[in-house]
Amino acid sequence: MPIRIEHMSHVYQPGSPFEADALEDIDLTINDGDLLALIGHTGSGKSTLAQHLNGLLTPTSGRVLVDGEDINAKGADRRALRQRVGLLFQYAEYQLFEETVYKDIAFGPKNQGLTGDELDARVREAFAKVHLPPDTLEKSPFELSGGQMRRVALAGVVAMQPRVLVMDEPIAGLDPKGRDELTDVIRELHDSGVTIVLISHNMDDVARIATRVAVLDKGRLAMLGTPREIFARGEELESMGLDVPQTVQLCHRLRAGGMEVPDCLTNEELAEAICTALEGGAADA
């Protein structure tokens, strides 16, 4: 189910003294099976773009097509759309409200009209996907740690079985362990066939798991490509206030020091490249 964004612009509070252009002429296709990372400096319009994908915001001009249907057309079923495109907000742990984790995860599927065994199966399945300790299911969500709460919130969205999952900074503000665990969950979701749009500030994670990267700068789509293509343009990224992953930074410094290594995205790849370069050097000597 591809999502097409056609010449979309969004203006906040048009006609008032607080008018602000958030997005300008965005043109982007999200294909099935993508793990698209959306990166950009604070205020570049990432979150605004994310909220357009399931119709929470309406574009000022342009269209958003999901499965070829204009989601903002008259008579479009927004609730049905929100079942297909799930959205996990920034600091999603603050949306939890039920007495138990179980009930909170059940909120979404219940709104879809599920009851009884079917509902129970959905909740347990979603709960299993986020790798929480089994005894947390009947606990109050407010007793959990921040990282666990965030995973409960993710389970609440996953339980609706969306085919596209949009996540706004899912790993921001977590400790390293929580971050790794959540990154694993995201990767597993992607492997199970869910198309993922991931907003992130963490370039290392983007390099590790994204299949494509879209760079937003001041409301415009500045770059689009594979992580390797994008991170090769380090200077441009820096001019937009963005970083390259640590692995790429290290490659740059190695090259500056005279070692011939290509840009590497993962630790394993980098280790391999360094070994090859060292062996090559040793052979010369």
Binding site: R79, R82, F89, Q95, F97, F107, G108, V157
Partner: peptide
Amino acid sequence: AQMARGADFESGNLIQRAKSMVPLLVP
């Protein structure tokens, strides 16, 4: 966030609408 999970704040009678505020008010 709750609308993204399918919550409906607009339709229904008074009691249903009051109930639908719980997911908003607790957080």
